[in-house]
Design a protein around this nucleic acid. Sequence first.
DNA 1: TGTGCAGCAATAATCGATTATAGGCAAGCG
DNA 2: CGCTTGCCTATAATCGATTATTGCTGCACA
Lengths: 225, 225
Amino acid sequence: MNLPSEDAGVGQSTYETIRTDIIFGRLAPASKLKLDDLRDTYGASVSTIREALNRLTTEELVLAEGQRGFFVAPMTAKDLIEIADLRILLECHALTLSFENGDTEWEGRIVSAHHKLHRMEQKMAANDVSVRESWKQYDWEFHQSLISACDSASLLSLHGSVFDKYLRYQMRSLTFRGDKAAREHREMLEAAMDRDSERAKTILRSHIEGGVRHCLNNPNVLPNK
Amino acid sequence: MNLPSEDAGVGQSTYETIRTDIIFGRLAPASKLKLDDLRDTYGASVSTIREALNRLTTEELVLAEGQRGFFVAPMTAKDLIEIADLRILLECHALTLSFENGDTEWEGRIVSAHHKLHRMEQKMAANDVSVRESWKQYDWEFHQSLISACDSASLLSLHGSVFDKYLRYQMRSLTFRGDKAAREHREMLEAAMDRDSERAKTILRSHIEGGVRHCLNNPNVLPNK
DNA sequence: TGTGCAGCAATAATCGATTATAGGCAAGCG
DNA sequence: CGCTTGCCTATAATCGATTATTGCTGCACA
């Protein structure tokens, strides 16, 4: 997850803000994005807004329908399943490469990321819902750290984009999957320290499939259809 | 490969034209993209040009460096290897899914695409270089047809984007890899008809790896560095 | 003669205005 | 009474102008 970086130009920060607003559900799926409204909301000119929306169109977080404007990408069960399938494919592949290349620095990043994630999991378990967004942020950081030694910028970039789309579905389930996910994270940490990529991949697959089931069983996630 | 569709708006067609100009090498790798120059070349206002460049930035065909403008993405051996690795990963996965789901319509698409590709391969073998771009177009269509029954729009879209980046490298090798590639295409056609996805994947892997070697051995492809 | 600062030219970023399009509503005709 | 057609409003697409940034060049001072 790339959070909005304040220091950048108007264009860049508008793009990042709209992007996170879509991912965190502050802009409803399938809703119309009127340029004039967005200009008022985000305080940038229509041209700048269009720039941001066009970029998001390429990422398929926004749909541009002919001359009829922009819409937030809708959320469907089929899309969730496709995205999860892609995340498994890309992340497992990256895991294999990363486990081969990873050095001690890499282990350090993982241990550090897991520690921070674990703290958030504890807070979530104690029903402190205020940390929901930072929890997901640290979840990203942990998964990212595991594959960070894969030595392929293209793979990392593609994975990041898929991860964020997956995250949009996760953000809609208000309940915490708790113990199970936390245990899987710990097991992946251990598998990484043992350089056992097969074990890590098995856990990751069931980790993601569990997340998908959790979403599909939760009526908050896909209210329509 | 999505070729420019003339019927669309100025923005869309500018985007598509610049995109194909990058992929087909008419815009040199790592070259600076000056907005005023592009406005004259493509006959659209700077805002429209910016819109196109921003979209291409998301696809990583163009790099946007701070407040210092846009550049065509450079081409490097490492990037080629990463892209090819991703193409293998995505296309093999799609192949598996597609072979499971494919119906008779799907077979028809493959046979048709292979026939057209074969015609171009014959022309290329006869040193008719004028068909170089349509040959690559039909190559795309054939590979696309093989995975077209994978039933995942996200996977097809991601694959398309990676394929086009791979294509950019292929377009720089002026020589025809000929017989070998043509035989591999025919073998993949046969594997598809037999629904033998393992065989198809093995051929595909060596097909792509052969293409990469062909590029890396050709000094035209990566002149610098 | 080398270095640093200042002003200038080139070019990018942002904006608001103008033009084009779509979709709804109403009037007129069948 | 219903359907079609033309106008009208809301909104998108495109544009050229304005502002900001960068990096170069030349001059002054050490």
